[in-house]
Design a protein around this nucleic acid. Structure first.
Lengths: 248, 248
DNA sequence: GAGTGGTCTAGACCACAAC
DNA sequence: TTGTGGTCTAGACCACTCC
């Protein structure tokens, strides 16, 4: 099982060191397959596989017909522990906006809104009956020029106000609207898994299929009931999630 | 950038479907490289790459000289939201033991203890002076027969009691010992990132290098100070992390 | 010893980007 | 048109496991 040193990994290691040393600023391609083949005296397949290792690590981006480029630096966004606080909502910021601001990014968000009947899974998560109508808000969130997060929010239509059907649900987002409507939020529950970007997500994020992503499911509760389920996909190497836990 | 269908992916997809259909129970190898070459009329390299895709997805395990095997089912452990509660400590269970019990696993834990001076990073995290002596507890945790989690805990030696230097620090672990010594825990702070298993970790976990892992850093606080830093590496596809967040 | 996966060779054709 | 990465071929030798 143990991986022994081999040519492929040696080449990858050398390229990796060069990249981290800053030898390949944006716009400067890494050596081409032909160059690597000659320089390291290996076959094209070996050269390619070495580059493939770096791609899997998220260090480089391969552009057909153009070349291999080091990916932009990765100053991580930080999903701060106060991201869901009422204070932030009161300040008119949604959770993602809060994150982006904290990280010094320019947040951008595209929303599409629709309604659809609850699947069994969603009905279970929302503690409602399958088929009940849901308000669905699909969001594509960017920081700077990069898409870094996708989120789909499900809310029982019975709880929705007219603003929530708008693409811009107003300052503080739908959580703020919910509270205005008398549904005072009590707590959130988040579960975090590691997933792999599927082909569609990969295209949206501009990374290779299979790249590691966070798959986060957040449920929002009032003291009475579940009011929202939010399925979030976050580019793995762009986020550090932070949580505070009381010792009780 | 978009990946088009190709032979390699087609073969991977077919094998993936077979695996998920349960065609390869433990002990039954997938078709060998030679078999795939013949059955799909492709070159050995293509056959190999197809299997490599499944390996990267964590679906199969490759054993040199033996064959390719579907990995054990993945009933996820669940890092429960009450994992750090005082109630659990009072019941004599540490956090990992709590997780494993919740998931119906038999937990096992190997510990080595040592002391070492604080690095700059650790000193910063613990809010102490660099070089101050730390008690270091290295833990390798298994569920069933599989290693699923590695953790290294750092505690200022000044806070350590004799029991903490033992491999078995007693019921409830060092958090319970800390509280007995008068350091009442107030809160924990956890940060979560996605990482890739390095060669050493990969060998310990029995997976390929580069497999996605959770990298979690937990800091334990009293009302006065930071008392512990714990760096945890968890096999990505074995855990779902769960957190509760008050709306405040 | 037979068969497996681990790695590599030395080519090839293609779609695409840049010029 | 030239060069790039994307994919594939049809072999090869090795270390290893299993019998």
């Amino acid at each position: 099982m143990a991986k022994r040193p081999n040519r492929t990994r040696e080449i990858a290691a050398e390229l990796r060191a060069s990249i981290l040393a800053g030898d390949y600023p944006p716009g400067v391609p890494l050596p081409s397959r032909a160059e690597l083949t000659e320089r390291f005296h290996v076959s094209p397949m070996t050269a390619r596989n070495a580059v493939e290792i770096l791609r899997a690590e998220g260090l480089v981006e391969l552009k057909r017909g153009s070349g291999v480029y080091a990916r932009a630096q990765r100053p991580m966004l930080r999903s701060a522990r106060n991201r869901l606080s009422r204070a932030e909502r009161a300040a008119g910021r949604g959770a993602f906006t809060t994150d982006a601001h904290t990280g010094g990014w320019t947040p951008r968000c595209e929303v599409t809104v629709r309604t659809e009947p609850a699947t069994d899974t969603l009905a279970d998560q929302l503690d409602i009956d399958p088929g009940e109508e849901l308000l669905v808000r699909d969001r594509t969130m960017s920081a700077g020029f990069e898409v870094v997060q996708l989120a789909t929010s499900y809310l029982p239509s019975a709880l929705a106000t007219p603003e929530m059907h708008e693409e811009d649900s107003g300052p503080g987002g739908i959580y703020a609207r919910l509270e205005e409507a008398g549904h005072e939020l009590d707590r959130f529950e988040e579960t975090v898994r590691i997933g792999q970007a599927d082909v569609e997500e990969a295209e949206t994020f501009g990374v290779a299929a299979g790249t590691a992503v966070f798959r986060l499911t957040r449920r929002a509760f009032t003291t009475e009931r579940v009011v929202e389920v939010n399925n979030i996909t976050m580019l793995g190497d762009r986020f550090t999630l932070a949580y505070d836990l009381p010792a009780q």
